[in-house]
């Protein structure tokens, strides 16, 4: 019960400030003071208090998009263990369900984008579809590297087996898995070098342009869903890199530190890199798939622990 309470607390408190932390890191790197850490939260609260504008072209799909996206992101975040090796919704083979829940959200976000009939939103949806399809094998391969040694396709079991196997540095396959998962995180959450969340030109956007027409509570749902998705994928990455104990007070501390590390790393990447030319992104993602595939080979060559 305590674990569930910690899980829910982290789920409610952390995702939006993590985005704030990324922005703060970027501001500091650019020599600015930057918005408060809680700015994303303020934005969402404000959006929830607003009315909404709907395009005359749209149908119920446009309304359903944010709702389904948020619902699937919440479920996905309930499946991944956070500051523990168990989670409220964990069950055998939950890694596959996790990945497909993210897919549900993506499907409806893209459909809602096409519902507006705008060429820009269609463009965003098309890019999202292409990059997500290429990121998918990398995600699954990386998860397999974690799950196969644990004999279980359940996040909880897989994560608890990592420290026993010696953790990241004793396990070169795991290192490659973390690398591939990092790329997947950047691609799935539309960060640099795949997409630039701060761009102001619709023609170059991916995620932002898909949600151009949403407003008010709908847009707030989208923002929360996005933050949860980032948080959930980040949590997987944290568990790969840091040995989070199953219980005890160290677990939440380590987890929060790890997630902060993820946010800071993303912020640094965004500060020092430019986004890739769109036609180069597939190569980047295929590279992640290949890295993960080599990780699988290494895993099997080294003898499964």
């Amino acid at each position: 019960m305590f674990d569930v309470a910690v899980h829910i607390t982290l789920l409610v408190l952390m995702p939006l400030p993590m985005l704030g932390l990324i922005n703060r890191v970027k501001s500091i790197a650019a020599g600015r003071k930057g918005p408060p850490l809680l700015q994303p939260l303020y934005d969402v609260v404000k959006l929830l208090q607003k009315g909404a504008v709907y395009s005359r072209t749209t149908t119920w799909i446009f309304v359903a998009g944010p709702i389904v996206t948020l619902a699937s992101a919440i479920l996905a975040a309930l499946i991944v263990p956070l500051a523990s090796t168990t989670s409220p919704f964990g069950f055998p083979a939950d890694v596959f369900v996790f990945a497909y829940l993210l897919g549900v959200g993506r499907f409806f976000t893209m459909a809602a984008a096409l519902d507006t009939g705008s060429a820009f939103e269609g463009m965003g949806a098309s890019r999202e579809a292409a990059f997500a399809a290429l990121a998918e094998p990398a995600l699954f391969l990386a998860l397999m590297i974690v799950c196969v040694p644990a004999d279980s396709a359940c996040f909880g079991d897989a994560f608890s087996a990592i420290p026993a196997a010696g953790g990241l540095l004793r396990h070169p396959g795991l290192l490659l898995a973390a690398l591939a998962l990092g790329v997947v995180l950047l691609a799935e959450t539309s960060r640099i070098p795949v997409d630039d969340p701060n761009t102001h030109l619709e023609l170059t956007m991916i995620h932002e342009v898909m949600v151009l027409d949403h407003s008010g509570p709908d847009f707030a749902f989208i923002q929360i869903g996005y933050a949860l998705k980032f948080f959930a994928l980040g949590a997987v990455l944290v568990h790969l890199v840091l040995p989070i104990p199953a219980t005890g007070w160290m677990a939440p501390v380590l987890f929060v530190a790890g997630q902060a590390g993820v946010a800071i790393t993303v912020g640094i990447i965004e500060s020092v890199m430019a986004r890739l030319r769109l036609s180069r992104v597939p190569q980047f993602l295929i590279g992640a798939c290949v890295v993960a595939a080599v990780g699988v080979l290494v895993l099997f060559t080294g003898g499964r622990p």
Binding site: Q283, I286, G287, V290, A293, V294, L297
Partner: peptide
């Protein structure tokens, strides 16, 4: 080319 190299690695 990348895929081919991956195949060679495999």
């Amino acid at each position: 080319s990348l895929l081919l190299c991956a195949v060679l690695v495999g």
